[in-house]
Design a protein around this nucleic acid. Sequence first.
DNA 1: CCTACCGATCGGTAGG
DNA 2: CCTACCGATCGGTAGG
Lengths: 219, 219
Amino acid sequence: MSPSARPSPAPSASRRRRSDGLRTYDSIVNAAADIASLEGLDALTIGTLAERLEMSKSGLFAHFGSKEELQLATVEAARKRYVAAVLDTAMKAPAGMARIEALCAMTLDYVARPEFPGGCFFVATQAGVRSRDGSVRDAVTANKAYFRRLLRRTIQEAKTRRELAAAIDPDQLAYELIAVMDAATWSTTDERRQDDLQHAGRAVRSLLDRARKGKRATP
Amino acid sequence: MSPSARPSPAPSASRRRRSDGLRTYDSIVNAAADIASLEGLDALTIGTLAERLEMSKSGLFAHFGSKEELQLATVEAARKRYVAAVLDTAMKAPAGMARIEALCAMTLDYVARPEFPGGCFFVATQAGVRSRDGSVRDAVTANKAYFRRLLRRTIQEAKTRRELAAAIDPDQLAYELIAVMDAATWSTTDERRQDDLQHAGRAVRSLLDRARKGKRATP
DNA sequence: CCTACCGATCGGTAGG
DNA sequence: CCTACCGATCGGTAGG
C-alpha cells in the first residue's frame, strides 16, 4: 500500500482475520440480511453467500446445519437491526401522539437510510415466504404483525389521552400508516426513490393531522 | 363414474384432450400466472409447471425456448387478465372523479376476487424481480408504472374539471391510493384478509372524500 | 409434443 | 473451518 493511503481499520491483505467464531457468525447473518432485503430469503444460496464472504460452503454451513436455520438466523439478525434502528429510539417517546409520531418518523428514516439496501427487510422478504409454511414464514410475518399491534395499541393510548379524535379506528389508522410507509420500500431500488420517500412522509403527516382533528370519513 | 355424478365439462379420463397448441399455450401461461402471484416468478420451474399440467418438461419448454421467455409470456398473460378485470370496465366511466372511483373500485374488486390467488399479480411479483435487470423486471415494473401514470392523469383531469380541490397534488394522491390498495394484496394469504380488504376500501373512500373537499395538510 | 440426456448448481454429508 | 464428495433438481439440448 502507498503511504498516502488513508488509514484503514479493515482486515489486512492476507484474507480476513477472523478473530473468533462469533464475529464470523455476525458477518454471515448480516450480509445475508442485506442480500435478502434486495433479493428475498430464497435467493440466499449457501454457495453464493460463502463465495461473497470468502469462505468454503461447508465452513459457512457448519454454523447453521441447515438452510432453514440460516434463514431463521438471518431473520433474527434483521429483527435486531430493526429494533435498534426503529423501536429502541421511538419507544423512548412519551406514550400517545408523540410516540406515534416517533414510530412513524423512525420507520421512514429506517426505510430511507441504507440500513438495509432493499428498504424494510420485512416488507421486502414477505413476498418470498407467504406461500410456504414453517418457521421462516412465521418469523417474517410475526415481526410485521408485532409492529402493527404495537402501532395500533399506541394509537389507542393516544385516543384514551384525548390526543386523537374519538371517532378514530386504531386498526384502520394503523393499516393506512403502515401501507403508505411500506410502499416506499419498493422505491428504494427505483429512480422514484426520493420522490416516494417524500410522498410517504407527507402521507403520514396528512393522516396524523386528520386524526388529531377528527376529520374522518365514516365507513 | 356413478350415474349420479354431476355432468362435467372437464376433459375425459384419458389425460386431457388438447384441442390445439393455442389452448395448451394459454393454459400454461395462465397456470404460471396463478402460481407466480403466490410464489413469485422465480418459483416457476419448468419441471414443476410441466408436472402440474401433466406434460413433459421439454414439451412445455418447446412453447417458449427459454425460461425468460416463459416468464415474459406469463407477465403478458397476467397483464391481459388485469386489463380485462380492471381497466376495460373502469375506463368506460366518464373522465374525472367518476373514473378515479371506478379505477379504485375495480382495483379493489380485482384484489378481493380470486382473479389471481395471490392478490394483485404485479404487487406480488415485484419483490422477486427488483434486484435483477432485463426484460422480465422491465415488464413487471412497466405495468405498475403504467397504472400509476394513468391514475395520476385521471386525478389531474378531475382537478381540471374542478371536481377535486386545486391544492391536490396528483402524484401524491396517486401514491396514497395505490399504497392503501396494494397493501391488501399481502392479506390475501392471511387470516386478516377480509378485515384488510375493508380497511383498504375505507382508506380509499376517506382519501377521495378529503380530496373533494380540499382538506389536505400542506407538505 | 415425447424420451433421453447434458453440465451446472443446489442443499447437505464424511472426514478431518 | 477445510477438501472432497453425494443425490436431486435446475435450465436447456438432441433427435425424433
